[in-house]
Each structure stands twice: as C-alpha cells, then as structure tokens.
Amino acid sequence: MVGQKICVVVISGTLERLQAAAMLASVAAVSGQEVRVFLSMNALPHFIKGSTAEAPHEGPMGDLMKARNVPEFKMLFEQAIELGDARLYPCSMAMDVLGIGSEQLEDYLGEATGLSRLLTEVQDGQVWTF
C-alpha cells in the first residue's frame, strides 16, 4: 500500500496535542500505513480505564474544539486500531510512576513498552512527537 511506517510519541496531556496525534494516527492507519503510538508522561493518565478527567486546553483552539463537534481523540485512536494497522503502547516508566498495571489501562492498549523497544520500533519509520 502507500507510505511508510510512522511512530507517534505522545508526551503531552493537553487536548490540542492529543487531538493532533489522534488525527494523524487515524488518517495514517486508514491510508494503509503501519502506525505505532507510544503514550508517556501526561498523555498516559487519559488512558486509564474510567478516566473522566478532561484534557486541559492550551489555548483558544482547545476551547473551540470542545464547543464544536470534533471527534473525540480516544475514539480516533480506537478507530485507527479497528480500521487500520495501528497499535498503542503505554510507556512502562509512566505506568511505574503512576503505580498501575496493564489491567487498569484501556483494553485496546498493547503491552507495556520501554525505551529499548521504542527505539527498535522507530528504526524504520518516521517519528512524530506531540
């Protein structure tokens, strides 16, 4: 198919960055690209099961997106997995810091991933950081 593999590293927990990362991941996945998403730092707590905390907004775009019918970022990540070849991996360090196990994270997340594994994944792909 088209294009090369992309690795999306999401560190920020703000709405604008999560949204941009989810849009990129979903559109790349449905275009036939292999997509690997690595969730770390402030991004990861949004993927704890039952998390209702709203992602903080960085600026006016975040407020506007909330008021409009913009697809929800978690839904876009799920669609990327469902409709294409996308996988989401939680950062093992962030899980340790939060004191959580895989069973506390959304079921569509893959196994805990450390930096060595991430470096292997990114070897043959583009890296996008949010």
Binding site: M23, S26, V27, V30, R68, N69, V70, P71, L76
Partner: peptide, 13 residues
C-alpha cells in the same frame, strides 16, 4: 456537522 477527520472516518467505515 462533524470536523476533520470525522467525515473521512465515516466514509471508511
């Protein structure tokens, strides 16, 4: 009523 990439994702489904 949906914003990017909502309509595209609906098309793909």
């Amino acid at each position: 009523g949906s914003f990017c990439p909502g309509p595209l994702m609906e098309l793909i489904v």
